[in-house]
Design a protein around this nucleic acid. Sequence first.
DNA 1: CCGGATCCGTTTCGATACTG
DNA 2: CAGTATCGAAACGGATCCGG
Lengths: 146, 146
Amino acid sequence: MVSRNEHAIRSSCPLACALDIIGDHWSLLVIRDLLLMGKHEYKELLESDEGISSNILSDRLRKLQDSGLLDVIPHPESNKRKLYFLTAAGKDLIHVLLALGRWSAVHRSDAIFVPEEMRARMAKGPEAFGKEVLRELAAWEKEYGV
Amino acid sequence: MVSRNEHAIRSSCPLACALDIIGDHWSLLVIRDLLLMGKHEYKELLESDEGISSNILSDRLRKLQDSGLLDVIPHPESNKRKLYFLTAAGKDLIHVLLALGRWSAVHRSDAIFVPEEMRARMAKGPEAFGKEVLRELAAWEKEYGV
DNA sequence: CCGGATCCGTTTCGATACTG
DNA sequence: CAGTATCGAAACGGATCCGG
């Protein structure tokens, strides 16, 4: 396990929780996957191109839960699987991701943070794209009765 | 020194450079200080509340330089000191910081990423605040003949 | 003094193997 | 399939040293 109580320690320092989440490689990637890529299961998250390892993934999932950005619900098709959904606070990070996507489209066109076609949409109409993403997510949630 | 060639290795992987910068605690803090807090010197950066240590700071400064987000110029008042200024790409991260500041104002009102008064301004009129920040920065640059 | 560089003990990360 | 245990590698941080 990766340091369970570290989070509690950090929270008490003036260094924003925001930085614990955003200022972390893997958390950011997990959020991207949950928010933009339509992923909701452990396995799907594990398979992202960047290759997060299983212990890191479960650590970050727990931290996101602890910070109230993530909800975990049982999978309707299996009692061993779980579904991960962002809370309202988590989903609101869409604005940060959009800003980041836009920045990286402009200044880091060589680097891939989201798939090409998505970046194009992001860059052209960020707000519209953001709304669309949230709508898709809402559809998912409805489907699974979140 | 903290791993000099790591950056080169990372750049070649599909994990965006954006994440190397933004997905890092200390880099993000340094950018905040340079962009929002009007800091431009090593010593000033070293003194931020979060307490970065000198080796970490110089490592991050170098990485930011390597990624083209940071310019270093000699200090006009002393040939020993240096001035750190963000490049255009670096300054453009203002939009990410604004989104982040806004998010943390809404969802993490207990955590401090920027000073209270600044957060209020950020939350109320992000674009206006962003422009103001960039104007202040331009004034600095002019003063130092960047 | 200032901007770092270096050393070093400690903490955290992460790849792999493993388990229920 | 969803995690956990292990363990080496990397990052951290603090102190200290150094050249200008």
